[in-house]
Amino acid sequence: MKALCLLHYPHGTPQPGDFALRELPDPVPGTGEALVQVTHLSMDPLPRLRMQEHSPVGPAMRIGAPVEGRGVGRVLQSNDPGLAPGDMVVGELGWQSLSVVPTARLVRVEGGRPEDHLNALGATGLAAWFVVDRLAPRDGESLLVAPAAGAVGSLVCQMAQACAPGVKVSGTAVGTRQAAFLETLGVRPLRPEADWPGTVGIDLFVDGVGGALHERMFAHLNPRARVLLLGFVSAYGDDAPPQYGNAAAILMKRARVEGFLLSDHMDRAEEARTGIARWLADGTLRPAETVHRGLASAATAFAGLFADSPPGKQIVELEDAG
């Protein structure tokens, strides 16, 4: 099988040279496992945190081993009666053409394109759905999404507008390509290094950036603002802990600040998928995605997540996806 392996831990922003394409022996499934032909990979920023010796979010990825990550694939062989050859599944398949995974860690999916199950109908869409559900935007409120042009952020912007057509949405964008994309969604683009424009404060803040942006935007919170912390991508390339501060603004504005983890909401996943599917069908939701071709392209696609990447979800289609 082919695998894209972690050559060494990245220093700062990941680079394509941090990974190497290798030929490895084909894996063999054991009891309760399935052999999966990987067809599509999801490019997500969170695995960057595990690409360091002291990972803050679980065990560090092993140097020389295939990069771990979420994907969609087709079952080739199953040692569990609950899955059959030909079934399409989603799970932590890794950046490799063949993967052996315990069947308990796989979710069978039906209908739609494989890409949909890594984007709007997958963890990306579910995260956006529950972020908006938790914030409960109302007409007339101002919402800031950071980052806004990526996979989760762009769906949050659209879902918030669907739930409250009168909400005023702003979002951070890197470069002119992302800014132009946000404008097509009716979102006011904001450069990450800029200050909050105008005199209207922030009622709702979806913060996946942290760091200096977090500090600047907290100074512009309205009284009783509602904030969800999704991550701290500004520090994903650092060994230092993430920076979330400005407690004085929380106190003086009586803001509600919460951390968000998708795992806390998975008991309502089917409810969310039903709603998302309805929005996809009637055109309310327009997921953006870029599909990169070939396993080797995952190195460049992943590195691009931390730079001026194309808008929306980044997906890698393997050579033998058909």
Rank of each mutant, 00 (worst) to 15 (best):
H265C: 02
M252E: 11
A212Q: 13
V233F: 00
E258Q: 10
A249C: 14
F260C: 01
S263N: 07
E215N: 10
G210A: 01
L262C: 03
M266H: 06
D238H: 14
M217C: 08
L280E: 06
A277Y: 02
A255S: 12
V257G: 04
R278D: 11
A219Q: 15
D203E: 12
L285W: 04
Y244V: 08
A281M: 04
M217T: 07
I202P: 01
K253H: 15
A272C: 05
V206C: 09
E271D: 13
L262S: 03
R286E: 02
L213V: 07
L251S: 12
M252Y: 15
R273G: 09
L262H: 08
R256N: 13
A248W: 14
A247V: 14
A219P: 13
G231V: 01
L213M: 12
V209N: 01
G208Y: 01
D264M: 09
R226L: 02
A219W: 13
D264T: 11
G259P: 03
L213H: 09
Y236M: 05
L251D: 01
F205Y: 15
L204A: 04
D203K: 09
L230G: 02
H265G: 00
H265R: 11
F232L: 00
D267P: 00
G210N: 00
V233N: 01
V206I: 07
A277E: 07
V227L: 09
R268G: 02
G259E: 07
E258N: 05
A219K: 15
L251K: 09
V227A: 06
Y236E: 06
D239K: 15
D239N: 14
V227G: 04
G245P: 01
R216A: 09
A225P: 08
R286K: 12
D239I: 14
D264W: 10
V227M: 06
R224A: 15
G231R: 04
L229I: 15
G211D: 01
G231E: 02
T284A: 12
A240M: 03
I276T: 10
E258S: 09
P242W: 00
P241C: 01
R286Y: 02
D239R: 15
I276H: 10
L262Q: 05
E271T: 14
A225I: 10
H220D: 06
Q243A: 09
V206N: 05
L230A: 02
F260I: 02
F205E: 06
A272W: 06
E215R: 14
L280D: 05
N246R: 14
V209Y: 03
V257N: 06
A235V: 00
R278V: 11
A225Q: 03
R273I: 13
R224P: 00
G259D: 08
F205R: 12
H214V: 01
D282T: 10
L204Q: 05
L261H: 08
G245I: 09
Y236G: 03
E258W: 05
L261E: 05
A212C: 02
A249K: 10
G275L: 08
R224G: 03
R286V: 08
A225M: 07
R224T: 13
W279C: 14
L213Q: 11
L230W: 03
V233G: 00
H265K: 06
I202H: 04
I276K: 11
F218A: 14
L229T: 13
R254I: 00
G275A: 08
K253Y: 12
L228K: 03
M217W: 06
D264H: 13
A269E: 08
G259C: 07
P287T: 00
L204G: 04
T274Q: 15
V233L: 02
N246Y: 08
L262R: 08
Y236Q: 04
R256G: 13
